[in-house]
């Protein structure tokens, strides 16, 4: 008894975005990464092929972070003390993209200077051929102070500068436009806010294929359902033809998951939580995999084992 499968035909398409530029394209990357371009809800290949698969980024810091989980310190080891080494290790662990998150202070406790930040970025670019995303430390003035020289020093590399927020986007967008980079726009788990920031950035004249949106998520157990539904709604709106939501989505399940007590610590927790390492990998992996199925195009992770599992899941999802 043949059944007619109802298929959704959507008017909208997600923008296809390429990150990084090779020698021939004005940069120094050994490869570029392209994602986006979807015309269906995630992985529904009976409706349309998946043009580009979601990719995995690994987050590294400019110096060894004090507050990361011991499990992460253990797995990255000495590489954590040198961003170049860390980037190489991340590439070996299967990252498609490196996310370099800058800190407020340097390893000696002094405020991070623009010179130092530019130096770190150049070191990472020199050590590893992957495309790069740079996140400022998250303070308006400092972000602008660091990201502008970074943007200028890496002109043509097609890196992503972050993070644009509704109260601070102008400077970052302007420098990204001037230097051929991309930006990422973060809003706190709200469909309207996300769309609004995209409008503001677009109003400045930023081309659509150079914008990523980060709708923010909570980790498993800490509000993942909000991020989950916001992302589903954004993707649905995009497919329905809302041009201001048709940007690829980047989310940071690694950051979120490793904040949780479940992932971060192994002592002083209930026995019913089970084995620490396996639990924390599951925490990060399930957060990421769930969000990939709502439409995430880039997931930023922290643990190599999670990277492996999430990449497996992506390959599996592509097989019909």
């Amino acid at each position: 008894m043949p059944i007619e499968i109802p298929k959704d035909k959507w008017p909208g398409t997600i923008h296809t975005v390429t990150l990084g530029a090779t020698n021939g394209e004005g940069g120094t990357r050994s490869k570029t990464v392209t994602f986006g371009g979807e015309t269906t809800m995630p992985f529904l290949q009976f409706e349309a092929p998946v043009p580009h698969k979601p990719v995995v980024a690994i987050e590294i810091k400019d110096h060894k972070p004090e507050d990361w989980s011991l499990l992460l310190a253990e797995v990255w080891g000495a590489a954590m003390t040198d961003p170049a080494e860390w980037a190489k290790a991340a590439e070996n662990a299967g990252a498609d993209i490196i996310v370099l998150a800058l800190s407020v202070n340097d390893e000696n406790g002094n405020p991070t200077t623009p010179e130092k930040a530019v130096g770190t970025v150049k070191k990472v670019l020199g050590a590893c051929g992957l495309p790069l995303i740079v996140f400022g430390p998250g303070q308006v003035d400092l972000d602008n102070e660091l990201l502008v020289p970074i943007s200028e020093a890496t002109k043509g590399e097609r890196i992503v500068l972050g993070i644009c927020e509704d109260k601070n986007y102008r400077t970052i967008v302007a420098t990204a436009m001037a230097n051929g980079h991309l930006v990422t726009a973060r809003t706190p788990m709200d469909v309207n806010l996300s769309k609004q920031l995209n409008i503001l950035i677009t109003d400045m004249g930023m081309p659509a294929d150079r914008i990523l949106m980060d709708p923010t998520t909570g980790a498993l157990g800490y509000g993942i359902e909000y991020g989950y539904s916001v992302m589903e709604r954004l993707r649905l709106a995009a497919l329905q033809g809302d041009t201001m939501t048709q940007f690829p989505m980047i989310v940071t399940p690694g950051f979120e998951a490793w904040k949780t007590k479940e992932a971060k610590v192994g002592e002083g927790v209930p026995g019913s939580w089970g084995d620490w390492k396996e639990r924390s990998i599951n925490w990060e992996t399930l957060t990421a995999v769930s969000l990939i199925q709502t439409g995430a195009d880039i997931v930023v992770l922290r643990h190599p084992e999670s990277v492996k599992r999430v990449k497996y899941a992506i390959e599996e999802l592509l097989m019909a």
Partner: peptide, 13 residues
Amino acid sequence: YEAFMSAMFLPHT
């Protein structure tokens, strides 16, 4: 709340 957030923009999202 949804309608409100949508309207928290000039003139509207």
